[in-house]
Design a protein around this nucleic acid. Structure first.
Lengths: 219, 219
DNA sequence: ATTTATTTTTAGAGTAGTCTAAATTTATGA
DNA sequence: TCATAAATTTAGACTACTCTAAAAATAAAT
């Protein structure tokens, strides 16, 4: 059985491995968990001792097969609880992250499977992130960043990168949601902003920062 | 903000205060939390420092007004989650205690009020225990122990004292539930067992141990 | 009332996790 | 390639909580 802290480290390492690929560095983990590099080193040693990460001094870490399994389980729990909070308790999608961060550590296999059933086996959370199934399989999304989208092609939003309230509230205010459809009309070299047309006919100019935090697929 | 451990101590002290009345002893708390008396002394000092309990060396503790408020909130959360687990996720009443023991520490006022709304403001948990409302008010139940019930009077079960699976499974097997109706037919001095008649006409003889763990009120 | 038993507290130490500051290793760049 | 910068690890200390064993206080019993 892992402590909440161990689970948090494992989840962070796993996520960073996916987004930054291969050997995750100590400082990157520290930044992610708002802690210090020295604390990370200590914890990494502990996780390596338990065969949950591969670790060589000064070379960063990767998760082992067992480590991945544990991390995926935490991710599954986090995302299922997010669906519960939004679908059943009517929370807004920008309010659920902190609470799910706590709920993901509740220990009970039976609970999580019953929750999954109750929610009717959802495959994505309110932010569009895929929910791993009970075996740990996760839908591989061939989504691209909105910043890399081409002009005059119809896309739909599938996922947002950042779960911060600030981003989610911005999207809400501009009627942008998971499954919203849009076409890129213009790309501006000056500040890398782009103008999109929504399927209600409205035009919207989005900053580069927004575009690098929103994933889309061709509709 | 209190740690899980502090909340657990506070809840235990509060419950023992209700059941054993006045100045709860160090050993009683230790037994209740499966820890050692010396650990209890340490924690009591910490809680006294925060004005959550009144403490005089060697004289036991009582909760302060603020301490009671915090304890009641934990109890409210525990019991609401138990209702959720039974009503929505179809757990049996003997399976929910351990999980609720974890869920009761999730920190979010918004969450607990939305859960309450979602469950349609229940007033008792699956074991018949009263759920405090958002202001901390709890229904005062004038229930008596089945062991103190009189002959030939129609009672109904309102609550069970012990949340252990063993007791709950015994009751399940004998079709005894919250709101089950029964009449005491006989009381045996030899072993303090009693014979009851259920409203389906069946007779049942119950041991003293069972009778001191089941609460009833006159129907 | 004084011994004995029980309860409670203190003292000292251990584990999990955190930090700062210093030392070491790796990466960078003239 | 050699100096310097950046990243990483170690060392030592701190908080929260736990324990055992011994000391002190209270309760019980002759």
């Amino acid at each position: 059985m892992l402590s909440h802290t161990e689970e948090n480290y494992l989840k962070a390492i796993f996520n960073l491995e996916l987004s930054h690929s291969k050997n995750v560095s100590t400082t990157l983990i520290a930044k992610n968990l708002h802690t210090k590099a020295s604390s990370v080193t200590d914890m990494i040693k502990k996780l390596a001792e338990k065969n949950l990460v591969n670790y060589q001094k000064y070379k960063g870490v990767t998760t082992t097969t067992e480590g991945k399994k544990r991390a995926i389980k935490v991710v599954r729990k986090h995302r299922l609880w997010e669906v519960f909070l939004v679908e059943k308790l009517n929370f807004n999608w920008d309010e659920v992250h902190e609470i799910a961060e706590q709920l993901e550590h509740i220990e009970s296999d039976e609970l999580i499977e019953r929750l999954d059933t109750y929610l009717n086996y959802p495959t994505k959370d309110p932010h569009g992130d895929p929910i791993p199934d009970a075996k740990g399989k996760m839908r591989a999304e061939k989504a691209i960043l909105l910043s890399n989208a081409n002009k005059d092609i119809l896309y739909k939003i599938t996922c947002v990168k950042d779960n911060s309230s600030a981003l989610l509230q911005f999207l809400d205010k501009h009627a942008l949601n998971i499954d919203s459809e849009l076409t890129v009309l213009d790309k501006f070299d000056f500040d890398n902003s782009i103008t999109v047309e929504l399927n209600n006919g409205n035009n919207l100019t989005l900053s580069h920062k927004i575009c690098t935090n929103v994933f889309v697929t061709i509709k």
